[in-house]
Design a protein around this nucleic acid. Structure first.
Lengths: 105, 105
DNA sequence: ATTCATACTTACAAAAAGGTTAGTACCATA
DNA sequence: TATGGTACTAACCTTTTTGTAAGTATGAAT
């Protein structure tokens, strides 16, 4: 039953590497309802700085959790969207909501 | 549907404060099957240092996710166990397992 | 020529997290 | 008197993460 062994590559650690940290899940969550431009994303997460947002998006793209679409226009227009893999992180967020709710209760 | 608003106290952030970071979920998970002593816990998470382990356990106890039972013996004997609230974090780990599995696939 | 909008970069600084090493306390037993 | 076993602490340091402030590029519109 206790079938996760704590190793350098266990599921918990894999997940933490992909979506751990202060911002990644917040960003993924904002993309739930469809693609968003950087400027919108920034407004929806009020206290993130532009630099950090871009930086986090970059690693999410590298992890194939987020897709970046550059429209090649001027002024620049770029949209970020969840990939399939990104979508598979959403149940995690739902569990966090449940956990936080039961904890607070 | 997109009903989590990103605020200083949204469920995602609450959860991250409680169980975020490199070690807390690993520790909680090790306690799934019952109370463990510090020395055992340490062996089951090979690369954690004693200081960090104690430090993390302390904050988990303060958050009421883990219960600390001191038997008052010499040499010291102390057992750590999940509380009810601690148990409610286990589904989170289960989701992480699923996420990691689908990601790796 | 100047300004505007947007995505992104760079250099730097501060803060948080994580880590190492060497201790302490206690009583039992040798 | 010395040693051993266990949980825990303290001083110090390194690495990682996060933040701030300023600047770049582009072409259209004024």
């Amino acid at each position: 039953m206790n079938s996760i062994e704590i190793t350098p590559r266990c599921p918990i650690r894999t997940t933490l590497e992909l979506v751990g940290g202060k911002w990644k899940l917040l960003i993924l969550f904002q993309l739930t309802n469809g693609p968003l431009r950087l400027s919108i994303l920034r407004k929806s997460i009020p206290d993130i700085s532009e630099k950090i947002l871009i930086q986090e998006l970059k690693t999410l793209v590298e992890s194939d959790l987020v897709d970046r679409k550059n429209f090649g226009e001027v002024p620049p227009r770029v949209e970020y969207a969840l990939t399939e893999k990104g979508r598979s992180a959403l149940p995690l967020i739902e569990e966090m909501r449940k956990f936080a709710a039961s904890y607070t209760a």
